Lab assay of single mutants.
Amino acid sequence: MSIQHFRVALIPFFAAFCLPVFAHPETLVKVKDAEDQLGARVGYIELDLNSGKILESFRPEERFPMMSTFKVLLCGAVLSRVDAGQEQLGRRIHYSQNDLVKYSPVTEKHLTDGMTVRELCSAAITMSDNTAANLLLTTIGGPKELTAFLHNMGDHVTRLDRWEPELNEAIPNDERDTTMPAAMATTLRKLLTGELLTLASRQQLIDWMEADKVAGPLLRSALPAGWFIADKSGASERGSRGIIAALGPDGKPSRIVVIYTTGSQATMDERNRQIAEIGASLIKHW
């Protein structure tokens, strides 16, 4: 058993032996400061991975655009179909130039040979490839079927209504393609630790998130040596930015963190910096 498999397999085991986890309101002070700095709403939640207890939250039940963070949920739905014998990670999917949409750094290189379902999930999560996400959405029946999958998990909040890139429109008060921090954190925890997916599929999902290559300026920039993080970021119109993550010290995840912001006029660099500073406060007061 690899170190990674050891880590995921023991998450339920550690729940019975973990020390009490204490919240630190200092992080919420930073979240509120980020709102002031960005001139935008910020949603935040910090969840204990083992118990599911909410440690801190700010606007946990307000809607925010999901942006590309939905791609983790999408690959969770794909893995659920794999577990049920309805899909194979090794199945190759062929597509054409007409299928390519904006920001497809991986799929645009494989027009001649296509990509496997496994490769598409990797591209969608680690590189946020939009065509990969659309191709995967097609395999499960489209955005409405992803919403149905989430409903069956008990998440009646999170919804996907459109495809890439239209889902990134982020119109104020538009509930399409949105979630709430509390709903996203709970759903992510179920995917990573619950019985919905097999152990192998849970491991695969967290491996893809751990290999994320496009979230460096966010929480990863504040991470001390030896800490673990598996994450997925997102960005969209109207100053929207977000990240969902499982992270913790000693090389294993122990908390879920979800951060969303929307409605800012700030630059992408400034949005990144504010999220990184929230992460730094979280780690300092861990």
Rank of each mutant, 00 (worst) to 15 (best):
M1R: 00
H5D: 12
F6C: 13
F6N: 12
R7D: 10
R7S: 13
F13L: 14
F17V: 12
L19T: 15
L19D: 12
V21S: 15
F22S: 14
P25L: 08
T27L: 07
V29M: 10
K32T: 12
D33A: 15
Q37P: 05
L38S: 08
V42L: 09
V42M: 03
G43E: 01
G43A: 04
G43D: 01
Y44N: 01
L47M: 15
D48G: 05
N50D: 15
G52E: 05
L55G: 04
F58A: 08
P60T: 08
E62R: 04
V72G: 01
V72A: 06
C75V: 13
A77E: 07
R81Q: 09
R81H: 08
D83L: 00
E87W: 02
E87R: 00
Q88M: 13
L89N: 03
G90Y: 12
G90N: 15
R91T: 06
R91Y: 04
I93S: 00
I93K: 01
Y95G: 00
N98T: 14
D99E: 13
D99V: 10
V106R: 06
T107S: 12
D113I: 09
V117I: 14
R118Y: 14
A124G: 05
I125Q: 00
A132G: 04
A132T: 00
A132S: 07
A133R: 05
N134H: 03
I140T: 04
K144M: 15
T147I: 05
A148R: 15
F149Y: 12
M153Y: 07
T158I: 01
L160I: 10
W163L: 08
E164G: 03
P165V: 05
E166R: 07
E166L: 09
L167R: 02
N168D: 03
A170Q: 11
D174S: 06
D174G: 04
E175Q: 12
R176S: 09
D177C: 02
D177I: 00
D177P: 00
M180I: 12
P181R: 02
A182G: 13
A183K: 07
A183L: 04
A185T: 02
A185S: 06
T186S: 15
L188E: 00
K190T: 13
L192W: 06
L192V: 08
T193R: 14
G194A: 12
G194V: 05
L196I: 13
A200R: 14
A200V: 11
A200H: 15
Q203L: 09
E210L: 08
A211K: 15
A211L: 08
D212T: 07
A215H: 05
G216W: 08
P217C: 11
G226A: 07
G226D: 09
A230V: 03
D231G: 04
K232A: 02
S233A: 03
S236M: 03
G239M: 04
R241C: 02
R241L: 01
G242I: 00
I243Y: 06
I243D: 02
I244E: 00
I244G: 00
A245M: 05
A246M: 15
A246Y: 09
A246P: 01
P249V: 04
P249A: 06
P249M: 05
D250K: 11
D250L: 09
P253Q: 06
I256V: 09
V258G: 03
I259T: 02
I259M: 07
I259F: 05
Y260H: 03
G263E: 09
T267F: 06
T267G: 11
T267P: 13
T267R: 09
E270K: 10
R271S: 10
I275T: 01
S281N: 09
S281L: 10
L282M: 15
L282P: 05
K284D: 11
H285Y: 13
